[in-house]
Design a protein around this nucleic acid. Structure first.
Lengths: 114, 114
DNA sequence: GAATTATATTCGCTTAAGCAAATATGTACA
DNA sequence: TGTACATATTTGCTTAAGCGAATATAATTC
């Protein structure tokens, strides 16, 4: 890994909404945009732009299934994997991240999309 | 750790000059500003501003000794320690980071400051 | 206390990155 | 074909963050 790669990864993770998205994907594996939107309680266009950012950065990948687009963590090198594992573990104590996860699970039961 | 703390740490590490400074400190423990300046080959004011940024972020601390100000890594929590350890390890393969370190060692022998 | 050196900070400027609102694209289904 | 829905992208704007050049501060030495 070269210097720009390190800084790009850290920059990708320096934005709160992107961190929240990454945490959900770390915990849940694969999610469609509408689930992320309602879990984070952030506007659709904001979520979409940050997903595009993460995709360009190579941190997530997406697949289309009908109308829905599912995002998941991209395959990545040792550094990124370990970094994300560390973040996942340390995120346990984070109120916001846990809240997102709870909202996701709550809405999963009575989902109106996907 | 809460969400802002995560994002602030990542933002601090998202800038190439700051990453280079952090790597030198990880490898060498304690350095004065003039050593960092000549090792990175970046202007004094740029280095100084990034050091201030890192200090505000709580990632480094400094002590004065006469005219010189020495910087070192600050004490920090598990997340930061592990993150930096991972970065240090992965930085082994980075041309720029290794170059900085080499220049630091070379100039150490015939140092004109500190 | 004046000159020198190391470091920090300010000023003026430019570029990147964020948001909200609006619009476009692509799929499904009648 | 047309309407509806999920998602992406564009536009216009504002704010944050970077830089170089210049200036300020603080310690040292003469």
């Amino acid at each position: 890994m070269q210097l720009d790669e390190f800084s790009n990864i850290f920059k990708s993770l320096s934005e709160p909404v992107r961190l929240r998205v990454m945490y959900l994907l770390l915990e849940r594996g694969e999610l469609c945009v509408c689930d992320i939107v309602s879990s984070l309680e952030v506007s659709q266009s904001v979520v979409s732009r940050h997903l595009a950012y993460l995709r360009n950065a190579g941190l997530v990948s997406s697949r289309r299934q009908g109308v829905w687009i599912y995002y998941q963590l991209a395959e990545s090198n040792d550094f990124i994997r370990q970094l994300l594992a560390l973040f996942k573990q340390s995120g346990e104590d984070c109120v916001t991240l846990k809240g997102d996860l709870n909202r996701l699970q709550a809405e999963g039961r009575e989902s109106n999309c996907c």
